[in-house]
Simulated scan of single mutants.
Amino acid sequence: MLSRTADCLFWLGRYSERAGNVARGLAATLRMAMLAQPLSAEDEWRSLLIATGSEPGFLAKHPAPTAEAVIHWLTLDLDNPSGIAACVEAGRRNARTVRTALTVDMWEAINDTWIEFRRLDPSVTKGDRLPGFLDWVKSRTLLFNGAATDTMLRDDAWRFVHLGTMLERADNTARLLDVRHAAFDASGGADASHYAQWQAVLRSVSALRAYQHVFHARLQPQLVVELLLLRKELPRSLLACYRSVESVLDAIADNNGGTRGACHSLAAQLHASMRDTETADILEQGLHGFLTGTIDRNIELGQQIGLLYLNGRQP
């Protein structure tokens, strides 16, 4: 497969996943901001900007993270490469470039999303209409992922789309948990605000019901960390993501002469760091430090994949 084709497929997977992740994060933050006291609502919106990695760009255009400004930045502002509008545009652009590598269902999912998005009235992100818009974005991401899962041959085209999806998903889970890491230090005792933040993190990755199914217990910080990092049953956990990344990279290498590079060893290290670690050890060494290190290595992994297989584009 040409590196340009692999590059477009990889970023198609990343941009599609990123749009859905931003929508989930926005929905959870909107709920938290409504529950928060007036003095802490701004902190909720700032946390979302940090989690999406778009705070510097936002502050270059806006003096403070107000609800209206953050919502527009993350939904309709094309100046934000991590915003939903930019992800829809970039995803469709990449899909069009490699149209023949996609199935009909995948192309229709991404192209119809792009067409419908361009027809939306800007007021769709205002007031009571915002939750419906976010649900629509999530549903379109799920439609694309379902089309890819159900209709693609398990060849290199599938592998690069899936690789991009899993790498983006791992990055999102780590960032969402890291931005609220202080709420998982219950050494000083937990209160209602801690409970609300644990719930917000789970909602951000659509895992609140999964938590209840797995643990059959009230929310506990160590169990939330365990679910999001170390449980293979959860498709958005870091363990599940990095297991998929390592497996896909191995399959790509085996199908292309067996050549391996730094990305393969780094993926194996990230997988092992989740597979062979206990929740208590993570919390003892410091959740923030663990997640920061993981996010940095995830960025490096994306760069190494780019150097070996792609055109070297950065997120």
Rank of each mutant, 00 (worst) to 15 (best):
A207Q: 11
A207H: 12
L208T: 11
L208S: 09
L208I: 10
A210K: 10
Y211E: 01
Q212V: 00
Q212W: 01
Q212A: 04
Q212N: 04
Q212K: 03
H213E: 10
H213W: 07
H213N: 09
V214H: 11
F215T: 03
H216Q: 01
H216G: 01
A217I: 00
A217C: 02
R218C: 02
R218Q: 06
R218S: 06
R218Y: 05
Q220S: 06
Q220L: 11
Q220A: 07
P221V: 10
Q222D: 15
Q222C: 12
V225R: 00
V225D: 00
E226D: 12
L228V: 15
L229F: 13
R231P: 09
R231F: 08
R231Y: 10
K232Y: 01
E233W: 08
L234D: 09
P235M: 00
R236S: 02
R236T: 05
S237L: 08
S237Y: 13
L238F: 10
L239M: 11
L239N: 15
A240D: 13
C241K: 02
C241S: 05
C241G: 02
R243H: 14
S244V: 08
S247C: 12
V248E: 03
V248L: 02
V248T: 11
L249S: 10
L249K: 13
L249M: 09
D250V: 01
A251G: 11
I252A: 05
I252D: 08
I252S: 08
I252N: 12
D254V: 02
N255P: 00
N255R: 05
N256I: 00
N256L: 01
G257C: 00
G257P: 03
G257Y: 05
G257R: 01
G258D: 14
G258F: 15
R260V: 07
R260S: 05
G261Y: 07
A262K: 10
C263I: 04
C263K: 07
C263R: 07
C263E: 14
H264S: 04
S265R: 01
S265K: 01
A267P: 04
A267I: 02
A267K: 05
A267R: 02
A267Y: 04
A268D: 13
Q269Y: 09
Q269K: 09
L270F: 14
L270T: 12
H271V: 08
H271E: 14
H271M: 10
A272V: 06
S273R: 06
S273Q: 05
M274Q: 06
M274L: 00
M274P: 06
R275F: 04
R275S: 04
D276T: 13
T279F: 00
A280S: 06
D281F: 07
D281Q: 07
I282K: 02
L283K: 08
L283Q: 11
E284T: 08
E284H: 07
Q285P: 07
Q285G: 10
Q285A: 10
L287H: 13
H288K: 03
G289K: 15
G289N: 15
F290A: 01
F290K: 03
L291W: 15
T292Y: 14
T292R: 15
T292S: 15
G293L: 11
G293S: 09
T294A: 08
I295C: 01
D296L: 06
D296K: 09
D296C: 03
D296P: 05
R297W: 13
N298T: 14
N298D: 06
L301M: 10
L301C: 12
G302V: 06
Q303K: 05
I305M: 07
I305V: 13
G306I: 11
L307G: 14
Y309D: 00
Y309G: 00
Y309K: 02
L310G: 04
L310T: 06
L310E: 03
